[in-house]
Design a protein around this nucleic acid. Sequence first.
DNA 1: ATTTTTTACTTGTAAATACAAGTTAAATAA
DNA 2: TTATTTAACTTGTATTTACAAGTAAAAAAT
Lengths: 238, 238
Amino acid sequence: MVSPKTIPQYRRLYEVLRKHIMDGVYKEGDLLPSENELCQLYGMTRPTVRQSLSSLANGGYIRKHQGKGSIVHHLPQDIGILSVSGTTSAVGDRNLKTKIIVKPVLKPWPNDFMFPLSELEKESGCIYMERVRLLDDDPIFYDISYIANINLPRITARQFENRSLFQILRDHYRIEIKGGDQRIKAIPASQKISRFLHLKKDQPVLHLERKLETNNPGLFLYSSIFCNTEKYSIFGRF
Amino acid sequence: MVSPKTIPQYRRLYEVLRKHIMDGVYKEGDLLPSENELCQLYGMTRPTVRQSLSSLANGGYIRKHQGKGSIVHHLPQDIGILSVSGTTSAVGDRNLKTKIIVKPVLKPWPNDFMFPLSELEKESGCIYMERVRLLDDDPIFYDISYIANINLPRITARQFENRSLFQILRDHYRIEIKGGDQRIKAIPASQKISRFLHLKKDQPVLHLERKLETNNPGLFLYSSIFCNTEKYSIFGRF
DNA sequence: ATTTTTTACTTGTAAATACAAGTTAAATAA
DNA sequence: TTATTTAACTTGTATTTACAAGTAAAAAAT
């Protein structure tokens, strides 16, 4: 395991406030403490506090209004980095389950992979897995993940049921997701996908192809996600 | 027209660099001038320069690497519809044409509108229009726009062909898009949509419901966009 | 020649300070 | 009472300074 890096102050405050928002300490529409108050409360200077608030605003947790303050915005329900919002009911973590369809296995990369790969990635082979994610026991996502087998000892032996892949990478390998790109399409459901997502064949599904960056340069996480959007929508901010 | 507001320095540099990247002055993989060099070139201090670069990184134009520099990233060439960050849209305007299907008209809001509306919005009625947007002469988007009729004199009389609605709002009313929320679904094409997008009925289309915020608090722009993703993907960053 | 160390870059984090500009409510004047 | 002005907040922009940490290439040692 890797040596623990010191976490920057602005990151710490970001995590604290984010958790408070997610836990309902600050509710939607609430005014966050002013920047100066946060400075006092957490013993930082305004630029540092502002960096935290910028990140929060960027992630859609708050809105900033000059002269007014920072207002808590709707709560994006995270599924990894993907956000989902139901039409009416708010979704909690407890309703989200993960079922493994293909256990993590080491194999060569597919030909014509959806993203270009580096030489190192190609040589290393990829760890492959397929999962279904259920929301309130409805299968919503079919998730095919690929990650280069670089410095990930024993990963295929780990327990993935009901745990986020992100969480495992973070806890055991200190790998954090920093951001990524995605392509989005609407496609007809294949036989396989329709079966797993309880849809009729050729019914529209959302298809996301994503390349996620990690704090380990050169190490990316790829996924191809099929999404049943009949009851839920994918939610985004920009 | 409204008095010209002074544009912040960091915004100016952001626009300059963004334009250079889009115009190919800096190509994919190129290293941008270092922060200190940019300070000298544009006569600003490093925090100001860093604010510009943060915005660029956030919009997916560059990647920053500690110790190395800022590297120009893959251009969100496809359709910058998910990354409206910045004052202008991220699409190369040359290939993008707009055809009006329903000219801007003032009418009451639909019942069961896709987003909740404020009282002021409801009273004001909405300006409604339908447009098809073509990329290389292929119809890709069917765009239904709604905007509350608040302080927008003569807007229904304006020329919308081949001009962005954003551009008109910006030039004539000094309204800028600051960000927004969206919901994404995959749905079967209706008769109407399939006709306009040259698709068969019930073929999958991407459906985006968006609420865009402006610099005028209380004024939002809503749109319902149907998107043919057979040839093009929607591209996004997070 | 090869490896190691140093050096000179790069971006990242953080403080202290100042003023501009938007918002709100209290104080004041009509 | 009502309207206006003022004052006290809020966030936005910008400068200056300092050091930490990552990268890459030159310099030195083997």
